[in-house]
């Protein structure tokens, strides 16, 4: 007998723990990045955008060169990172947070793709070839999106319970 259908997937305790830990770690990373930017009055994405390479460089540089757009990009970046971080840690709108985080990371990847012959001036501690940390973190978020855990360990659990109560009533 199923107690109540919280999950179409069922995980072993170890599987569930791993998914939640990975979710918290990525959430922590996002939250710290967002808060650090929020509290640094000098931060702007312009330098990052300006050094973009490859076929999308034109779009990113245009963003940096247009003050109004740059301002929006900066605000979206800061608050996007903060909300994604909170969502992942708390398990609140987890799947939305996973997807938004993956999209954001994919944009970072496209802005600074680690392709052969491309180099960037921000410090990079290792040499990348096609695969960088953005791509790995993005893929981890896709995995977390597909193997959801927020409705088991997370605030989403309450949302699901509420939904199910409505269905039954």
């Amino acid at each position: 007998m199923v107690k109540y259908n919280l999950n179409s997937q069922s995980y072993s305790t170890f599987q569930l723990t791993s998914l939640v830990v990975l979710r918290i770690l990525i959430g922590w990373h996002f939250l710290n990045e967002g808060i650090s930017k929020l509290l640094n009055p000098y931060w702007t994405s312009s330098a990052f955008l300006n050094e973009s390479q490859w076929i999308f460089a034109g779009i990113f540089k245009w963003m940096a060169a247009t003050p109004a757009i740059l301002n929006i990009v900066d605000i979206l970046n800061i608050w996007g990172q903060i909300f994604i971080g909170i969502g992942l840690i708390a398990g609140f709108f987890t799947r939305t947070a996973c997807l938004s985080g993956a999209v954001l990371l994919f944009l970072y990847y496209l802005c600074w793709p680690p392709l052969i012959g491309f180099s960037y001036s921000a410090p990079q501690e290792v040499n990348y070839l096609f695969v960088d940390k953005n791509l790995i973190e993005m893929t981890a978020l896709v995995v977390l999106f597909l193997f959801n855990s927020g409705h088991i360990i997370g605030v989403d659990r309450f949302i699901l319970l509420r939904k199910q109560r409505k269905v039954i009533q």
């Binding site: 918290i24 922590w28 939250l31 708390a90 398990g91 088991i152 360990i153 989403d156 309450f158």
Partner: peptide, 12 residues
């Protein structure tokens, strides 16, 4: 279970 990860914010 719903609030299990909230203490992480305190640590953060």
């Amino acid at each position: 279970k719903g609030l299990a990860t909230i203490p992480v914010f305190g640590v953060f």
